[in-house]
Simulated scan of single mutants.
Amino acid sequence: MADTLAWPVRVVDGAFVMVEVGSEEEARQNVAVLAATRQGERIPAPGYGIPDPTGIREFDTAELTSAAARFVPGVPVRVVEDRADDTGTLTITVDVNP
């Protein structure tokens, strides 16, 4: 199967790091990019992303699963855990199985 650039883009030993298209790692990276992108940030695809990727107002896990269904088709995404620690840092664990 073909390879694509890994995200984040990085170089190791003088070569770009690649991931296999259709692999679980590619699916994880695609969902991570989606979750980190604010809707409207990508001009050619203004609906891509989620309304509040920083979780300043409140991170809505339903928005993430809905966006993943639209923009990462064929990859079931399930939020496993959604919790905040004592400092208010929110950790969201997502199960991605292509």
Rank of each mutant, 00 (worst) to 15 (best):
A68M: 13
G55N: 00
Q39Y: 11
T4P: 10
L64V: 09
Q39T: 09
I50Y: 04
D82F: 10
W7L: 10
V96E: 03
V77E: 07
D86H: 10
V72A: 08
T89E: 12
S66N: 10
I43Y: 09
A67C: 11
P51V: 14
G88S: 04
W7A: 11
A45K: 14
P73Y: 15
A32D: 13
R42M: 07
R28L: 09
T4Y: 00
Y48Q: 00
R28V: 06
A68R: 11
D3H: 15
V11H: 06
R38P: 03
G40L: 07
P44H: 04
P98Q: 01
A32G: 10
M18Q: 09
A35I: 14
T93W: 14
R83C: 12
E41N: 08
D95V: 02
S23H: 10
R78P: 04
R38L: 02
G49L: 03
A68C: 11
A68H: 10
A69L: 11
D85S: 05
A35P: 12
R70W: 14
S23I: 07
M18E: 02
A69G: 05
S23W: 13
S66V: 08
I56Y: 13
G47N: 08
A6R: 02
G49I: 06
Y48I: 03
V12W: 01
A69N: 08
P73R: 15
T65N: 09
F71D: 05
E20G: 11
L34V: 11
T4C: 04
D52R: 06
G22D: 03
Q39I: 03
V21T: 05
T93V: 15
G74R: 04
A15C: 05
A35F: 13
D3R: 15
G49M: 02
V11W: 03
I50L: 05
E26H: 05
Q29T: 01
L90A: 14
A15W: 00
T4Q: 00
V12P: 01
V80H: 04
L64P: 09
D13P: 04
T54S: 13
V94W: 05
T93P: 14
R70A: 08
D95C: 05
T89W: 11
A84P: 15
V94C: 05
V33E: 11
F16W: 10
D60A: 04
V12A: 01
V11I: 11
N30C: 01
R10F: 01
R42V: 10
T4M: 00
L34F: 12
M18Y: 02
I56R: 14
F71E: 06
V79G: 13
G55T: 01
T87D: 12
Y48L: 03
V77N: 00
P76M: 11
V33Y: 07
V94K: 03
A36W: 00
G22N: 06
E24G: 13
P44K: 06
D86G: 05
E58S: 07
E58N: 09
E25G: 03
F16A: 12
W7F: 12
